[in-house]
Design a binder for these strands. Structure first.
Lengths: 258, 258
DNA sequence: GAGTAAATTTCACTTAGTGGAAACGAGGGC
DNA sequence: GCCCTCGTTTCCACTAAGTGAAATTTACTC
């Protein structure tokens, strides 16, 4: 889209690489396979260019060709890069075990996320379930930043400039309900400033509470705790919030420790 | 390395994109952070080129800059792409639930993998543990193709040409024990042809058994089952092998069905 | 605070990437 | 079964975009 004409990127940056990445990004949950045509449409790139770039991406293991339908799919190499992200994250290395213990102790979901553009990406999401067999860990899942406690806590942890740049994106994305939405976001951010956490019930029957983790020199992270199948009340939010704030303090200690 | 001089890639392919991908690939478990210098060394690319490409990768969310140490780390966007791989895999969608059930039923580990270059990448690896809390699912982990049952089963599922190309790589990688190793690999492949599975004890105390899953128009996959803390005997391999072959048959049925 | 090592930007060069148009190939309808 | 149409890939001349050596700036050491 924005990439289409005249290479607006401006400064210095490698156009072909940018385009290749944008092609990879066109694949996401729900968009499993794409043909060159669809890619061209979604990215705004000329068809011949897409054809060449997908060829390179296949040759280098980032895409698999589904010959029968003349279409492409993300390849296994991408998954192993994703795994490397998790293995290489010092924050996850320290917080992972703490989060698992805390999830069991408090009997609720615990998640750690950071941002990719205007989405939050779970580095780890521990789903608590009374039946141990059904507990699970998910990573890489995306949730919208402006609608979730996780995202709003993240925003609260950013510098003013970075936050403002993102707020603009939300306006574009959610053209209709903008006014209310931005007010909601601001309210959550104030809540983080005041109480250390914000509580949001994004999905019906789920109450989520989140807090930012700011570490010098690293991206901002956000921790959350959530419970399902419960009436989301102010009091419950405050209770989980107090657990979360205490937990986050321990986390920050562990991170700055050794 | 191979990329260095004169763009050996030859045919048509986008050099900058190739290089960018190769930079991403330089990060893997154990290589958490890399500076531009190290990247240049590992990839054989000129330093200025690396400098520019990493800048692009940062701008497009694939790398995070660790300013304090003038170094880079894979970013969250890569993780969410990895997640998209799993969500978009029709094979995993069908086999995932079957694998989980089978792991519980047989009380052993069940894995599904495919190849990235000369490594096998787990799409899903279900680790059975008597204590339900300690069961886990891992995805994206890599294991060497030539040393594992998974990899050898995969090789058995390939066409002759593709297999030969990989065998050459093993020779390079394992210059010393080549002769014995290749013989071992061949033996495993014959075992797959004869019995439908091959058994390998790659890590001490772990017996793994694998079988290929070949589906027209898709990459070759391999299924495995494994048990820990047990004396790896021929008889045990045969027993697990029979479970695996039966399970694989069910899997193939489920895949070709609806 | 000067010296050293590394990363980044500059700059002129030219190769490598581009996109329009032509060729090719796969489905679908008649 | 053949022809037509739509989508994809290849070709080709053009030139802008990417390149790498050298200069500059930046960070770190003694």
């Amino acid at each position: 889209m924005a990439l289409a004409r005249q290479y607006a990127g401006g400064a210095n940056g490698n156009r072909s690489l940018e385009r290749g990445i944008e092609i990879l990004r066109a694949f996401r949950p729900g968009v499993d396979t794409l043909g060159n045509g669809e890619i061209a449409e979604r990215t705004g790139l000329p068809r011949s260019t897409v054809s060449r770039l997908t060829k390179t991406l296949v040759a280098f293991g980032m895409l698999d060709e589904v010959r029968t339908e003349r279409t492409y799919r993300l390849a296994a190499a991408v998954l192993s890069l994703g795994h490397a992200v998790r293995m290489g994250s010092p924050v996850l290395k320290v917080l992972g075990p703490l989060m698992r213990a805390e999830s069991t102790r408090r009997r609720l979901n615990v998640g750690l996320a950071t941002a990719d553009r205007a989405m939050m990406v779970y580095l780890e999401s521990i789903r608590y379930n009374p039946r141990p067999t059904l507990r699970s860990i998910v990573a890489g899942q995306q949730v919208p930043m402006e609608l979730t406690s996780l995202g709003r806590a993240y925003l609260a942890g950013l510098s003013d400039g970075e936050r403002d740049r993102l707020l603009v994106k939300f306006r574009r994305r959610n053209a209709a309900a903008t006014k209310t939405l931005i007010a909601e976001v601001q309210k959550s951010i104030r809540s983080v400033r005041r109480d250390g956490y914000c509580a949001v019930s994004w999905q019906p029957g789920v109450l989520a509470v989140a807090t930012p983790i700011v570490i010098q020199g690293l991206p901002v992270y956000a921790l959350n705790m959530s419970v399902q199948d419960i009436e989301p009340t102010e009091a419950l939010g405050a209770e989980i919030g107090s657990y979360l704030v205490a937990f986050a303090a321990r986390c920050k200690g562990a991170l700055s420790g050794p």
